[in-house]
Structure formats: C-alpha cells, structure tokens
C-alpha cells in the first residue's frame, strides 16, 4: 500500500512543482493526472503500483467534496438574496452543457465516419 500512496503523491508533487515553476493557471492535480496517465502508457509506472489506492479514491470522490460544500454556510446571505438566478442559471446551464457536448460529439463522430467511408469507397 505504501507504494500506492508514494506514486500518487509523487505525481501530485510533480504537478505542484510544475505549477510553481511556470505559474501556469492549471491545478497541480490535473497536471498530475495527465502525467500519471502518460507514465502508465509509457510503462514508467506499472498499473499494479497504483490500481488499488486509485480505485478507492476514484470510487469515493464525492466524499472529499463534502467540506467544500459545507462552506455554503458562509454565503447563506447572498444565496438567500439571489437564490433565483443561482438555482435557475445553474440547473438550465447544466442541461445545456450535457445536451451540447453530447450532440456535438455524436455529430462529429458520425460525420467523420461517413467521411472515412467515402474515402474508402473512392480508393476502391
């Protein structure tokens, strides 16, 4: 188990280091995630070294958000004043993001598969 913690925190540390070095506005954890994925692909890190702990963390991700959510109690005043725009804008926009992302993905995918079909035919 120690190696699992060691590897994950090493990648987080590399992310923090890069953010510190470059001042880039991307969180260290996202950089760590991308680098971990790349290192697994390149065989620098073996899947067995990280699989157990990462499985546990990924499956319980929601729990780690609880304290941030409790921070809500510090802005109850603003929420009471403006709950209508906050709730409606958030809910409708979430709807829009899901629909737009899914539609564009399906559209581009079917378009590109038709295109490659056409090229395949012309090649014949």
């Amino acid at each position: 188990m120690i190696i699992q913690f060691g590897v994950l925190f090493a990648f987080l540390a590399i992310g923090e280091f890069l953010v510190n070095l470059t001042g880039i506005a991307i969180p260290s954890s996202i950089i760590g995630m991308v680098l971990l994925c790349a290192s697994l692909k390149l065989g620098i890190v073996k899947l067995g070294w990280v699989e157990r702990l990462s499985g546990f963390l990924v499956h319980n991700l929601g729990f780690f958000f609880v304290p941030a959510g409790i921070g809500l109690m510090n802005c109850l005043g603003i929420i009471a004043d403006q709950w209508i725009p906050i709730v409606f804008a958030t809910v409708i926009s979430t709807f829009i993001i899901i629909a737009v992302t899914g539609w564009v993905h399906q559209l581009v995918r079917s378009a590109s598969s038709k295109l490659s079909h056409k090229y395949a035919k012309e090649a014949e």
Partner: peptide
Amino acid sequence: YKKGGEYIDFWLKPAVVALGVPLY
C-alpha cells in the same frame, strides 16, 4: 469546522490524480 474538514479536503487533490488510471 475547517480545522477538521481540511483533512478530508486534502484528499481531493490525490483523488483527481488517481483519475489518471481509468483514463489510461
């Protein structure tokens, strides 16, 4: 609350790093 809560918050970052595994 945060004096305790920050120990839970702390795991958010390693958990995001861990998402690299399903991604891979």
